[in-house]
Amino acid sequence: MSLSIFSVQLLTGLAYGMLYFMIAAGLTIILGVMNIVNLAHGTLFLLGSYMAFTFMNQQFSFWIALLLSVAVTAVIGIIIEKLFIRQIYGKELEQVLLTFGLAFVIADTAKWIWGTEPQTMAVPALLDSSISIGPMVFPFYRLFVVLIGCLLALLLWYFESKTRIGAIIRAGVDDRAMVSALGINVGVVFTGVFAFGAGLAALSGVLGGPLIGMYTGMESDILVTSLIVVVIGGLGSWKGSFIGAILIGLIETFGKIWFPSLSMLIVFLLMVVVLIIRPQGLFGREVA
């Protein structure tokens, strides 16, 4: 494999890894803080990209569409949390049923509104160019996705370790009872976390639009992959999700070259290997 081809693969893997990171970051923090396996997370991704698609058809620019759909999805997240999730804290199996039901409802509503035809999104004009790497060209937009992903990781790291809210969330992951004992309104924190997670899902949905497109049934593909990222990284760990997502992105890309016959399975195999070596994920805390 020549260096130029290697770089193309590497960047491709990273670009997809970043998309997975953005969606998994929301999922993992919801899991870590609120202890909810949000099976409707994939549909929030779907909603994000469909809404941006609509805004762009209304002649909004890509950037405005991005902001609008992230904001709207976050609001939807707030509604979901206040109306439904709030009722079932601490009841794991009910959560599974509820978020699964919500996923059904949201995905089918999206199908109702946006139709069944697969769609795609245009790359914003500003980024619609490519760079040459040796004999190959590489679309600039993917570099942009990598950049945004890294920025987000930095932002989250700063947020988590340097701000008060970050400290509260960190404490929430470690010990929920303590947070409420400190007189912090846990309900508000939970709503905020859920909305934040929903917004991140929409962000990756919009950024992924030009790469993956929108189609019926994509929510479950996305959900499974991001759950795997969360598990590999360890529940509630942003750092873990970042590393896990990059791992998944790279192994998917390079797996196509090195183990073409395993392409259906390679992501699952990676997860099994990680879990056998470290049952709590790469950066998860030891399970008592």
Binding site: L31, V224, V231, S261, L265, M271, V272, L275, I276
Partner: peptide, 28 residues
């Protein structure tokens, strides 16, 4: 024997992987 070392959510996911493995075998 391998899976029950993991607990709760991790068990859920590792069994998911197991199911997909068999699915892929039947498929391929």
């Amino acid at each position: 024997a391998i899976f029950i070392r993991t607990s709760k959510f991790y068990f859920l996911m590792i069994t998911l992987a197991f199911g997909q493995l068999l699915f892929a075998l039947a498929w391929q």
